[in-house]
Design a protein around this nucleic acid. Structure first.
Lengths: 164, 164
DNA sequence: TCCTAATAGTTCTTTTTCTGAACTATTGAA
DNA sequence: TTCAATAGTTCAGAAAAAGAACTATTAGGA
């Protein structure tokens, strides 16, 4: 991928791993069960050389594990690591937003169903470290231990989120 | 941005809007309260010509509203639309993942605090359309009204998510 | 009125990345 | 030992991004 963002920010850091046109599509495939080079290729439309590069990078970043697979030829299996599976929240958020705001109600290509009730999965509640729900409009940003002067200045300007 | 993904998938559709190195960073800035060309420029490090192009695209995509601002020179104010604010879930998911899996506990540059309890915001619960919690490991994918033959074939292969 | 400063945006060149196609390598099975 | 399947490499052309210089617009002040 391109040059990395280098300021202390979790969004920037995350974009350094998944912030390009293809990576989240590869991770979507992994969640769908795809684990072979050729299947990633076929199901996403990425070019071969980019796929090679992206898979290598994702293995290096600890998102995929690569294991030999004795089939025909030189085969490997790519599986999500725990760190990779933890991207499920990003997957779900993007999936929900795309359904709601690009396709719109009644036009979703794929829906997620809650097996227990048969109802559609339909959003998220934020929870705090006690597991209790958080009011999305009452969140404050705080300088963390990994922040620096830039972070402090940045937060000094704005602390309230317009979450809804 | 680059060529668009063209298959019926909410992730692909979302990537067509935010799937590049800079866009989520601009949206982060908007959540932080940034609304002027020069401030986006300064706070992200994007180049001027790309910023112009991205802002135009985001206005076209309905993520930002652009309004005249009488200051000095030819000024505008960029504000998130409701569709843009709805990306808060993506923002929160990326933010949480970056903190947890790139910086790690004790190294977060920025933390989100639940004003009501003072505790850290620490993840998401999925909810169904009744607003009730969903067991993440019990979700099924279903062909939606906007799906096509490709979608059907795709889902036929795998229906269970390895969410954790 | 004219100049200046502030802001936003454009243009242009160079560098980097992506695309797409052809080619190579490895290995199991016939 | 040849063939087919798979993964991966190489390379040329196209597209996008980076970075710097330049232009345009307008408020305010001399």
């Amino acid at each position: 991928m391109a040059k990395k963002h280098d300021h202390p920010c979790a969004i920037a850091a995350t974009l350094n791993v998944i912030g390009d046109r293809w990576t989240m599509l590869l991770i979507r495939e992994a969640f769908y069960g795809t684990n072979r080079f050729g299947d990633f290729l076929k199901n996403t439309g990425i070019s071969r050389n980019l796929l090679t590069e992206r898979l290598n990078q994702l293995v290096e970043d600890g998102i995929f594990m690569r294991q030999p697979f004795a089939d025909r030829g030189t085969s490997h299996v790519y599986e999500l690591t725990e760190k990779g599976r933890a991207l499920d929240a990003v997957f779900l958020a993007m999936s929900h937003w795309g359904n709601a705001h690009i396709y719109g109600e009644g036009n979703e290509p794929v829906r997620m169903i809650d097996d227990d009730t048969g109802l559609r999965v339909d959003g998220f509640d934020l929870v705090n470290s006690d597991g209790h729900p958080v009011n999305r409009s009452k969140i404050t940003l705080e300088l963390g231990p990994g922040g620096d002067g830039r972070t402090r200045n940045r937060l000094a300007a704005v602390r309230k989120f317009p979450f809804s």
